[in-house]
Write a protein that binds this DNA or RNA. Structure first.
Lengths: 276, 276
DNA sequence: CTGCATTTAGAATAAAAATTCCACATTGAC
DNA sequence: GTCAATGTGGAATTTTTATTCTAAATGCAG
């Protein structure tokens, strides 16, 4: 029984099990059937619990694993777990792969690959995370107001500045808050509960953004926030917030997902206003 | 420590963690954040592996679990595992949900899909179009200079403003040219052939960007350009230029590819400068 | 049926994991 | 600054879990 078999990914393992099941002794066939039909159980269970539920002895599971070329049951279980893990992301491996490329390609094109890869990943996550009802609600809230104040500094500033530009083109009254000359606080002091605030901030949260949002919340101005964690100080003051996790590469976070969401909000709000 | 808390389903648990995180001691907050951000890791890992990756002691994980009303870590882990188990079972359900979405035709989520699709497409094209040698050359040119002037208005301004921010963080001398107070022309008049210009412009080309670039070209200042066509007025004055075609949706062009290229240039230039 | 090889059950053992405990550190009230 | 209360790190302990081993059972060729 050589160990040169033992696939590391679930699809290959499943194929192997099905193929080998036919020529295995009785109890091992039983395990094979059980494993293919209850992969979740195999992924999460213990040797004892699976043995019980598949109606075999614990040792049979170990023998089964070894018959397939694995070192023991735990080894085989890893593959079953990877199936559940990979569904979402598996990016360390891909990053490693990217590093591998480094040798042939130039340093800069490696970076380009990395950054666009991170962006693609971010976009994929975005689709999964954003709830359409919440999105709808945010659009309505923003469209119902008068002036939309756009608050975002540092890394988030490109986003708000884009929104300001697009809103301008689309005829939506807005005010871009920037820190030039420390005027931020004054700019926003004109805001009333009829207005709306769109605040964007990611770790490490810019203190100006946070304090601005807090002040606005006290005055009863509705805040829509885009941030990266439920623990963000923005989440607690916002009337509604979106969580966006941007993939990062070499410590630089993508902005692709945030930008897509920002464009969506911008266009949707403009269209909503037109209809009224 | 009453046990009347301790939710059995993941959604409730997540909500509880988020709520309680604020009033928990330091290390427990740390675990809370980690758990919310890495639910897969918590589902699959062992106390030891999770502790390592969350940078706490194993015992902290147990204390955390108990603080939430669970008997121990294993008890809490069960709930994290249920999330992955359910996801597989809910597969059909989710598909149904998706169909539902289509029917109610949430306008905003259609937009979101459209914009993120466009972004993904742009990124795919980017990888094909950019030549690594040219990229390398652009990096070298920019890194060799003194001050890098970043020129981009309107739709391109978010890009240059991001670069300016990132260059600042990375210690690369740069000057962001914006149109505030019409100072653009003056700002750039200080530039010498030792400096570099990075100009970004897409149709319809902002006239200020073009004229600025032309003036700089006359003074012999090397220009690296990012634009969308060989016929762009930027292409003819630049010493080296990249063509980027951004996919668009409803007339709004993505910026994902441009941004990825911008990040690449930024980081690559900073690294190059460090080496010298 | 007899003898040999393979398979199996179940207990024994080894390994790994979770949990507890306690000394030390930190925080906040006075 | 001192004290008490609370929180923390790390080792010790307990529990759970995987693996190995052996005797018995089963199947199969002759």
């Amino acid at each position: 029984m050589t160990t040169d078999l033992a696939p590391r990914d679930f699809a290959a393992l499943k194929a192997l099990i099905i193929e080998r099941a036919a020529v295995m002794p009785k109890r091992l066939t039983q395990v094979a059937t059980y494993a293919v039909e209850n992969p979740d159980e195999v992924a999460f269970g213990t040797v004892a619990s699976i043995a019980l539920s598949a109606d075999v002895q614990p040792s049979t599971l170990v023998r089964f694993s070894q018959a397939l070329g694995y070192q023991g049951f735990s080894d085989l279980q890893d593959v079953f777990r990877s199936r559940l893990r990979d569904r979402v992301l598996n990016y360390d491996e891909r990053l490693e792969q990217l590093r591998g490329h480094a040798r042939d390609g130039s340093k800069a094109s490696l970076l380009l690959d990395g950054f666009s890869d991170a962006a693609t990943r971010s976009l994929a996550m975005l689709k999964e995370k954003i709830d359409s009802q919440q999105l709808e609600k945010a659009v309505k809230t923003l469209a119902d107001g008068e002036t939309i104040y756009l608050v975002g500094l540092r890394r988030s500033f490109p986003i708000t500045s884009y929104m300001s530009y697009a809103f301008g083109k689309l005829g939506v009254k807005n005010m871009l808050i920037d820190a030039v000359g420390g005027l931020a606080a004054e700019d926003i002091s004109f805001a009333t509960p009829k207005d709306r605030i769109l605040a964007i901030s990611f770790t490490p949260y810019a203190s100006e953004t946070i304090s601005l949002a807090q002040r606005a919340a006290v005055h009863g101005i509705p805040i829509i926030a885009i941030t990266d964690s439920p623990f963000s100080p923005l989440a607690s003051v916002a009337s509604l917030w979106f969580e966006i996790q941007e993939a990062n590469f070499e410590g630089f976070r993508s902005m692709a997902a945030t930008l897509s969401l920002a464009m969506t909000l911008t266009v949707a709000v403009a269209e909503q206003r037109k209809q009224v």
